[in-house]
């Protein structure tokens, strides 16, 4: 379970998050929607301790995220997997080394055969062929890089999966594939998933619950069905855009 309590964050004079509170029960797939620059990515970064809140707190599992406590932070990060908006693959190493990076760094698997099996298994899970393992990220299309990035995050088998704008820059077929993958992961592996996005189509297709952010506040919190019938102006605008 992830619990966000009265979380506030400002950059210079702009208050991006204003006392936001919500929780994500285990196994739920939550979509956080909002316009660009509303603080969705900042919210995700707070969960893994890449940002420090001005006030409020974030609890992952039963641990409070505290960037000054390296031991706790490291334990929380081991539980979480964040797929960044951009693939964020290491340019200088191959796909195989990228996917196996977390396994080696965390010492999860030491046997090279086991690592190889895990890498191939995760590649297959994201719909990629194992023939790309020796390629470098620059030799892959953007969509493929994103899938490799997801495979890298899944390789360490996190309890909480966080996606930052997962469908940005992907074609409609790849987007549908990714949505199905998120759905599969939540349903089969019971992974708690938080997706920040402005892709309303994906949210309606995949989410168990949707939160809508506007001016640093939550203006909607409910199921996709409720989202379709809400009178919240921004929610209606999102649906009209869709």
């Amino acid at each position: 379970m992830i619990v966000i309590e009265k979380l506030s964050k400002s950059f210079t004079n702009l208050k991006v998050l204003n006392e936001i509170s919500f929780s994500v029960p285990s196994g739920e797939c939550l979509f956080v929607l909002g316009k660009s620059g509303v603080g969705k990515s900042v919210l995700l970064k707070h969960i893994v301790g890449l940002e420090t809140p001005d006030s409020g707190s974030v609890i992952v599992g039963n641990k409070k995220v505290d960037v000054s406590d390296i031991v706790i932070l490291s334990q929380i990060r081991k539980q979480c997997g964040l797929v960044f908006q951009f693939p964020a693959l290491l340019d200088s190493v191959t796909v195989f080394e990228n996917i196996s990076f977390g396994l080696r760094a965390r010492g999860l698997l030491k046997n090279s055969k086991e690592i190889e099996i895990r890498v191939k298994e995760k590649l297959s899970l994201v719909g990629l062929d194992e023939s790309i393992v020796e390629k470098y990220p620059s030799q892959l299309s953007y969509g493929t890089q994103k899938r490799v990035s997801i495979a890298r995050t899944l390789a360490v088998e996190p309890e909480y999966l966080l996606f930052d704008e997962p469908t940005t820059g992907m074609d409609p077929i790849a987007t549908t594939g990714l949505n199905q993958l998120i759905k599969k992961l939540t349903a089969q592996l019971k992974i708690t998933t938080v997706v920040v996005s402005h892709d309303i189509k994906s949210a309606l297709a995949v989410a168990d619950r949707i939160i809508l952010l506007e001016n640093g506040k939550i203006v909607f919190d409910g199921t996709p069905e409720k989202f379709k019938s809400t009178t919240v102006k921004l929610a209606q605008e999102f649906q009209m855009g869709f």
Binding site: L50, G81, L82, F84, A88, L89, F101, G102, A105, R152
Partner: peptide, 21 residues
Amino acid sequence: TMGVTEQLNAIRLLGANPIEY
């Protein structure tokens, strides 16, 4: 470039220290 494309953050989250690696 590694910093602004989140490669360094990815290393942190995967359990390694970017300064070391």
